[in-house]
Structures are given as structure tokens and as C-alpha cells.
Design a protein around this nucleic acid. Structure first.
Length: 515
RNA sequence: CGGGCUGUGGCGCAGCCUGGUAGCGCGCUUGCUUGGGGUGCAAGAGGUCCCGGGUUCGAAUCCCGGCAGCCCGACCA
């Protein structure tokens, strides 16, 4: 099968070498003069978007499906990361009292139309099934873009009394949204996600739930993915179709672009009314339920990649790495092979490392192999180490090598992994801080953001006083930026006057270009 | 959905302008060799040149249509 994708990238590299011929490029070539078993990775500074593609492909994370527009195949390393993420999230969902459920993939078309804003928001991106079993369906089904409607239908069936509340459900599922422009993990036609759906007897309780789950997302993003986030509220203009309020976590990628990493919606009684989900209160009053929904998707993996990876390929934070460490044995002769492998397998077993005992591959080839797949720590064990009782330990992010006694590795490895996790978070946090700037006029904001692109980078989070008003959203959109969120916590200078309308606002908002 | 670029063994590419039976590097297989960052040698396998139509004695090459990918824009969780 042709890979037009790679060919395009490669062509770019070719152009760069022939036309510009900067010394750096030549040096890069000299470093890899021999067999390039796998494709080179475009440098971030050269073309961030191409770099991202290269990392996804060479990291064995995913590839474009090609035969299905806008869809991707999630490859073993990518899916393994997703499984770790799922586990981390799911554990927290359970801890906060939620149960997993599963609803149909197909939703009667009329359901979408019951909530006016919802249908308006999703209609353009629906895929619809009109024929099934060889016959035209009386009523078409839409393939779910999200499940508020079908779940609303069942909530109405299951809820009668305040005693049935709260209903705290979560669904792991795939959804389809017919997006016009797709990028692997960041926006694909079909994607995997979880969607939480809850129903409550009071707005207060629902709002608590919304913030609780936002906190769960922030916790996973920062403490598992090592990806710092800003918790905030979307402007009315940017909120979820059908919600009262949408909360989000926003993170900054290495090119300074924003990525919405998760959302939690206060649906109010909108879907309760649309699907007639009523309950009788303790006082005997009939009222509509207050609902929430919240979700994160495989997009998180895109964020993970663009947060930590480098020009050598994928970098995975230890807590998300399917293989935290890999041990590469090195040997020359058969008698060396036997003793090295014996020690290596003993150590690997002891510390839970994957032993790369593949034959016919040089150690060097193995190092490259694991490097571009983001394995946090690679251990090297050769005849010299067997003799001396040492082992070599190398971390992926800094490239630092350490020689230590084999007896110490079981104790040192977890410490190193922990340190790497912390360092990755710290450097991502530093980047966020370094690239966050204040602006006090809309012209200034525009000046900072107007030339920013996904390829060239240079993106910033611009903190400015801007009112939550459609006029302001439109003004910011003129230079292709958006108000990412109104932070829940003001870390700056408090109230000020809106730089578009002049009206007073409580604090600065985040303006940025985004994926 | 509009604009630009692209699609040739598994991967990266050349060939296309100026039509004449498809080539290179890497990978792959086998054997030997080598092994602390992509080891070397030898022999071999592998291709509907994205799909469909047209022009032509003859199409990877020219023309038309479609599909897919990447970037920009519009759209969008």
C-alpha cells in the first residue's frame, strides 16, 4: 500500500537538504550514514506538524486507515498506552461512585432533534444509517456522535423518585463525527472515549459533579500524563451544544498551541426537559433532573505526544508507559551469550523489565527501536557488566547513562522512573509558564498570535481581560485564535476592563491558537 | 467543503516533461560474519506503478473523473 503521507514528508526533507544545506542538516545525515531501518524523524523546529506525524508513525502508535476517510488504525504501542490511560481513569471513576454501562451505537435520528441546540451543533457532522438488512429504514439511525440523547431516553425510563438519584454512569465507547479535517489522535472521524452521564436532584449537586470530574481529569493529566493543564470555563459561544456551561482542561503543546484535553458539562435541565426525565422530590414535587456529562478521548494521546516527545521520537512518562524498562543484552560469542542472557533474564524478571533477546538484531538497532517507541528506561548488560557486576541504565528523556551495581538496580529503577515522571511534568510546566504572556489591548493579543501556526510554532497563551460575549469571541477569531477558557483560578491581577467592549470583567482569560 | 501538494515492491525514492515490457537504497528470507548506538559479505523473494475511463499500435508516463493522505482556509470537541 502506498504511503503518500510519508512520501510527502520525505520530500520536504529532501528539499531542505538540497536548497538550504545548513550544517545541522548535514550533521544529521552524517550521524545516520548507514542503514536507516526506519524513517527519519523531522525536527520539531523544521516542521512541527510533520514531526508529529513521524513520531506517531515511528512510535508504533497509529497510522492513517486510508481506506476509511479520516480514520486511523491504533497500533499496539498506541493501544497499550490507551489501556493504561483507561485504567487510570476508570479506577478514579469507580472511586467517585460511577458504574460502567453500555448503550447502542445507533441512535434514532429523531432523538437528536429533541434538544434544539444539540441538533444544531451536531447535525453537520453526523453519519446516518439509512439502509439495513437490505431494506430502507423507516427511521434512519445516526451513529452516535455522543450519547446524551439515547441515555436521556433511558434515564426517563429508570428515574421516578429522588431515591433513584443520583444516577452516576460512565460509558467506554467509540463515536463518529464527520470532521472535515482530521489529524491522528487529535481529531479523527471515529475516536475512542469515555462519556460520563449523570442525573441529579438539584443543580447544586450536578455542579459539584461537574467540578469533581474536571478535577479527576486534571489529576490524570498532571499526575499520570505529566501534562499540566488549566482548568476553566468555556465561553458561552464555545460551550457544548445543549449545555448550560462547559468546563474544560486546556494544555499547551510544545509549539505553544492549546489542546482541549477534557470537558465536563453542566447540562442543567435541558436534556431532562427534552426527554421528559422527571422525578418526584422528597416533598412530593415533580421536577426535571439535573444532568451532567463529561468526556476525554484518544485525543489525550495526541496531547501526550506533543507534550513530551522529542526529535528522536516518542517519549512516554513512566506512569503511562506499557513497558517502563527494557533490558538489551550485549554479547559476542556463544559462551558470552549464555552468561549474559542468564544474568539479563534474572535481572529483567526481578525488576519487571522487558528482555529484548531477539536474535539477529544488533544492540544498536535495539536501542533505536525502543527509543522511538518512548520506553522510559533502557538497560544495557554486556560481558563487561557481567564480569564487573554492574549494569548500564539510560533514561529516555535526558539520555543520561548511569552505571550501577546490579544489586542496586531493583531499588534504583523505581527512583529513576519517579524522577523522570517529575522532570517531564516540571519541564512541561516550565514551558507553559514561559509561553504564557499578559496583554492589555486586543491589538497586542493579535500581534502576539497572528503569525502562529501549527508547523512553525511560537504559540503563546495570552492572558487578557475579555468579556464572555459573542462579540469578543468573534473579534478574537479574526486572527484565528480562540478564548480557550476563563480560568477557575485567577493567577494574575484580578479585575479589569474588557479589551474589546470596555466592560468590567473579574479576571483574565486564556487566548490562544488551538488544535 | 474550497485552495495547494502528493500517491511507483514492506519503507524511502528515481523514472513521468520528450509514451516503447519497471529501477535504486533500506528492510525482508537463507547462510556465514558481527555485536557497548542502525556490522559486513553473498545469494534470493517480493510490484494490479491508488482506482476507473479516455487518447494511442503501445500508458507508470498524456487527458478526464474518482478515492486517499499532508498543509492552508472554512467547519468543528
Amino acid at each position: 500500500m502506498p504511503s503518500s503521507l510519508s512520501s510527502r514528508r520525505s520530500k520536504k526533507i529532501h528539499h531542505t537538504f538540497t536548497h538550504h544545506i545548513h550544517p545541522q542538516a548535514c550533521r544529521t545525515l552524517e550521524q545516520h550514514p548507514k542503514n536507516m531501518a526506519e524513517s527519519p524523524i523531522t525536527a520539531r523546529t523544521k516542521d512541527f506538524a510533520a514531526w508529529y506525524q513521524d513520531v506517531v508513525l515511528s512510535g508504533d502508535m497509529a497510522e492513517p486507515a486510508e481506506i476509511v476517510k479520516g480514520c486511523m488504525v491504533i497500533r499496539p504501542n498506541g493501544y497499550a498506552v490507551w489501556e493504561v490511560l483507561q485504567r487510570e481513569l476508570d479506577t478514579r471513576f469507580k472511586e467517585t461512585g460511577h458504574q460502567n454501562v453500555y448503550f447502542p451505537l445507533l441512535i434514532p435520528q429523531s432523538f437528536l432533534q429533541k434538544e434544539a441546540e444539540h441538533v444544531e451543533g451536531f447535525a453537520p457532522e453526523l453519519a446516518v444509517v439509512t439502509i439495513a438488512g437490505g431494506k430502507k429504514l423507516e427511521e434512519p439511525y445516526v451513529i452516535r456522535p455522543t450519547s446524551e440523547t439515547i441515555i436521556g431516553h433511558f434515564f426517563a425510563k429508570w428515574i421516578q423518585s429522588y431515591r433513584d438519584l443520583p444516577l452516576l454512569y460512565n460509558q467506554w465507547a467509540n463515536v463518529i463525527r464527520w470532521e472535515l479535517r482530521t489529524r491522528m489522535f487529535l481529531r479523527t472521524t471515529e475516536f475512542l472515549w469515555q462519556e460520563g452521564h449523570t442525573a441529579h436532584s438539584s443543580h447544586e449537586e450536578a455542579k459539584e459533579e461537574v467540578l469533581r470530574m474536571l478535577d479527576v481529569y486534571a489529576d490524570v493529566a498532571e499526575n499520570v500524563m505529566a501534562m499540566p493543564v488549566i482548568k476553566g470555563v468555556k465561553t458561552n459561544n464555545e460551550k457544548f451544544a445543549g449545555a448550560l456551561r462547559s468546563f474544560c482542561i486546556e494544555s499547551m503543546m510544545q509549539n505553544g498551541l492549546a489542546l482541549q484535553a477534557g470537558t465536563s458539562h453542566d447540562l442543567g435541565q435541558n436534556f431532562g426537559k427534552a426527554f421528559d426525565v422527571k422525578f418526584q422530590s422528597k416533598e412530593g414535587q415533580l421536577d426535571y433532573v439535573w444532568q451532567t456529562s463529561w468526556g476525554v478521548s484518544t485525543r489525550l494521546i495526541g496531547g501526550l505526544i506533543m507534550s513530551h516527545s522529542d526529535d528522536k521520537g516518542l517519549v512516554l512518562p513512566p506512569k503511562l508507559a506499557p513497558n517502563k524498562s527494557v533490558l538489551v543484552p550485549i554479547y559476542r560469542k556463544d559462551e558470552e551469550r549464555a552468561s549474559v542472557l542468564e544474568t539479563a533474564s534474572k535481572i529483567a524478571k526481578e525488576i519487571g523489565a522487558k528482555l529484548d533477546d531477539r536474535e539477529g538484531q544488533n544492540p544498536g538497532a535495539k536501542f533505536y527501536h525502543w527509543e522511538r517507541r518512548g520506553v522510559p528506561v533502557v538497560l544495557e548488560l554486556g560481558p563487561r557488566d557481567v564480569a564487573s557486576g554492574n549494569i548500564v541504565m539510560k533514561r529516555r528523556d535526558t539520555g543520561a547513562k548511569e552505571i550501577l551495581p546490579q544489586a542496586d538496580v531493583a531499588a534504583k529503577l523505581p527512583v529513576l522512573l519517579d524522577q523522570m515522571q517529575k522532570d517531564l511534568f516540571a519541564s512541561a510546566q516550565k514551558r507553559l509558564k514561559d509561553n504564557t504572556v499578559l496583554a492589555n489591548s486586543i491589538g497586542e493579543v493579535e500581534e502576539i498570535l497572528k503569525t502562529v501556526t501549527a508547523e512553525k510554532g511560537g504559540g503563546k497563551f495570552v492572558m487578557a481581560h475579555i468579556k464572555d460575549d459573542a462579540v469578543c469571541d468573534a473579534r478574537v477569531k479574526e486572527f484565528k485564535a480562540t478564548i480557550r477558557c476563563i480560568p477557575l483560578q485567577d493567577e494574575y491581577d484580578g479585575p479589569g476592563n474588557c479589551i474589546v467592549t470596555g466592560e468590567p470583567v473579574s479576571h483574565r482569560v486564556v487566548v490562544a491558537k488551538a488544535y
